[in-house]
Design a protein around this nucleic acid. Structure first.
Lengths: 192, 192
DNA sequence: GCTCGATGTTGACACTGTCTACATTTGAGT
DNA sequence: ACTCAAATGTAGACAGTGTCAACATCGAGC
């Protein structure tokens, strides 16, 4: 994300971020993105075969952002298991900082999940988690599962927390919890 | 769900089930529901103020189905902790049996989450989980958290598994796992 | 018998995604 | 410097959508 920092493609993706942050998923239309980018309603189709493809590209960027957020969070962890807890916090921080992008990343009816960049970015993100899990296993933590399986379990749990928080379900069921509360609850409990 | 088993309202909700099962979330439109129910495109608005309201009613039904699925699954559990594991299986079985309904239940851009019936059904479903969690705590399992918090954690984990499975992410990351595999993995690991 | 509420129909409106035909700009090769 | 082709953008159309208003039907209760 540097050489082509101002191509029309990148401008459209930035516009999509603005729109989804402002209007949510229901306002995230191709025409709204075009308006935000200051071009006519047909212009985006010169750069993406369709809305699903644009949203897949946005999601791919989201996965990279997510990895960066996790990387930043684990920077000064003492042990692998400690880094795993910090990774969860980094993950949730991204989801809360970019709720619209995070939602698009996991709605197959919106983003074209067959897009190669989307799949690659998603797998890279999962790979990051596998590495963290494997390192914790090397310290003897849940060493009796495959790293992939352990990573899938951890991913599921953190993803569930993110989705329910974004949905507002956690807030309505516990008091009005903050993200930090969720992180504390999750990291501090259930043997993580 | 009995006295009014054949009101137009109930017929529309049945039609919505058919449509979402056949065409997925992107095909779940008000007009498609009307077509499936054999009425004109404006007829549903006589019974629901809008699509979001209809989907909220469908979601409320979904929460009741979900509770029934969990209830059936825990019927012959030996201990409270054992029942908790069976409850997770019942939960995931519902999500996989009715993927469209399950998805609608957790998309606030589709279902009107302010609908009173929706909220009541969702809270009842959560209450069911709280009871199960509290019973397991009475057996000494994770007794150092509040039942609500413990239930929220369990819910997040199972919801994350359901969402990622429905999204196809678990299948693409582990091999082509079945739901039973997911249940085994989840229930058998992480001290549940 | 008549009225009124429940239910349904029809047509309109402003949106949407996508397509096609047409314009403009721009850069690389001669 | 000129040309031409690719990149990019515009404008209009089409079918589909949610929602609304006006009109129709029909049945139960007075």
């Amino acid at each position: 994300m540097s050489r082509d920092a101002d191509t029309p493609r990148a401008r459209l993706l930035r516009a999509a971020r603005v729109v989804v942050a402002r209007d949510g998923l229901e306002g995230l239309t191709l025409r709204a993105i075009a308006r935000e980018a200051g071009v006519s309603h047909g212009a985006p189709l010169r750069h993406f075969p369709g809305l699903g493809s644009l949203l897949a590209a946005l999601s791919a960027e989201g996965f990279e952002q997510l990895m960066a957020s996790v990387d930043a969070a684990i920077a000064d962890g003492s042990s692998a298991r400690d880094r795993l807890g910090r990774a969860a916090a980094g993950y949730l921080n991204f989801a809360v900082a970019e709720p619209g992008v995070y939602a698009v990343m996991f709605r197959r009816e919106l983003a074209d999940v067959t897009d190669p960049d989307y799949r690659a970015a998603g797998q890279a993100s999962f790979g990051q988690l596998v590495s963290l899990a494997a390192a914790a296993q090397a310290e003897g933590w849940h060493a009796d599962v495959s790293p992939d399986q352990l990573a899938a379990l951890l991913w599921s749990h953190v993803h569930g927390l993110a989705e329910l928080w974004l949905h507002g379900a956690l807030q309505s069921v516990l008091g009005d919890v903050s993200v930090d509360d969720v992180v504390d609850l999750y990291v501090g409990r259930l043997d993580l």
